[in-house]
Design a protein around this nucleic acid. Structure first.
Lengths: 206, 206
DNA sequence: TAAAGAAGTGAACCATGATTCACATCTATT
DNA sequence: AATAGATGTGAATCATGGTTCACTTCTTTA
């Protein structure tokens, strides 16, 4: 008979899926998850609402993918900072990781808020737990290494790692919840960094 | 003419309001905010849905009051622990405050999760920010005092206080998000306490 | 006990927004 | 060109759950 999907078709499918995802992320970056509706996504993408369902099973799946996509890059950056090519002390790596996380969250604006703290439906929240877990895992590995090298005092790597995630989320979110941007980057990042270093590395700053 | 609301009437009004609030809190304690609907509240209270609106302007107002109610006691306990009658060192008070917060959160179960982390609609989230701010304010005051007495090193009390709130929320929520209860209370509380003490008081534990 | 107004009722209404589906249109094979 | 199947359409449907309102019932005062 005729027409079985193949190469070119698949490519177009994938491209469209990708394009929709990109549009969705940009909507979230502007108005958060609460601004992401199927009809709006369709409108901005220039297609019909029903068409969206040819690419995503449901709103929940869409949100989950958006979350994953927007998150992957960030996690990767922190991971790369925590485990660089060249040898760097654990203390320095921890400093760098915390700094870069904070900087990116602050510059990320609305998107960062959406990813870190915006109230979302349970399906996305589930994804958020995974996201936080990814950070926690990175920190946990780094802390374990630091303990082994005696740079860090004995502690529960799991608890300390989760605590780090909590610190970063809370401190960076309090401001984001209210106004828009944050002015004094350094005014904020420096104390966070010092706090984290004292907690993990018992590092006397200043 | 006749019948102007007075004493007895007001008392009944207040009592009913109170009773509804109590029922609402118990629903949240069982199934979280997502389980709290007007019709369910009405059903459990044995009244009609419309009647609920004689006592609460809207769902959002109801949620806010529920949140406030469930929260007040907890905040008060931490405040009392942070600023006791008799003289206690800042370090000890910080230890006690963190411990009691963690213990109560763990024992609080579903309600604690609802108050600390459950995804809720923006109106309630607003209330949650206030709740977190209340804790942060207590910690901030305590930290300031500790800095003044030289028990704690120089640091940004504001950032450190927010960080404490973040730590407690995150570490206690990670488990709550998944399974039900937590087994090893001490297994968890002790590392948290140590982490916080290192961060705030540069206190060498163990 | 009559009247005024508060309190209670619950089915109907409304708003939001996800999801479906009968149909049209496009694309690759024969 | 004919056709099978994929893709696109968007108005209609569904689901949820908050909110309203015309009405009844209760309570207090005169």
């Amino acid at each position: 008979m005729s027409y079985r999907p193949t190469a070119k078709t698949r490519a177009r499918q994938k491209a469209q899926h990708e394009s929709l995802l990109k549009t969705a992320v940009s909507i979230v970056a502007r108005d958060g998850f609460c601004g992401l509706t199927i009809s709006r996504l369709a409108r901005e993408a220039g297609i019909a609402t029903g068409t969206v369902y040819k690419y995503f099973d449901s709103k929940a799946h869409l949100c989950a993918e958006v979350f994953r996509r927007a998150t992957e890059r960030e996690v990767e950056i922190v991971r790369a900072t925590s485990f660089p090519e060249d040898a760097v002390s654990c203390r320095q790596r921890l400093t760098d990781a915390v700094t870069i996380f904070a900087e990116r969250a602050i510059l990320g604006g609305r998107l960062a808020y959406a990813l870190i703290a915006e109230p979302v439906d349970p399906a996305v929240e589930q994804e958020r737990l995974i996201y936080r877990k990814a950070y926690a895992d990175i920190f946990e590995q780094l802390i374990k290494e630091g303990i082994k090298t005696k740079e860090f005092p004995s502690q529960s790597p799991q608890v300390s790692a989760a605590a780090l995630v909590g610190i970063l989320a809370e401190v960076l979110v309090a401001p984001l919840g209210r106004n828009e941007g944050i002015k004094d980057h350094k005014q904020l990042i420096s104390p966070i960094r010092q706090f984290c270093l004292r907690a993990i590395a018992l590092y006397e700053t200043a």
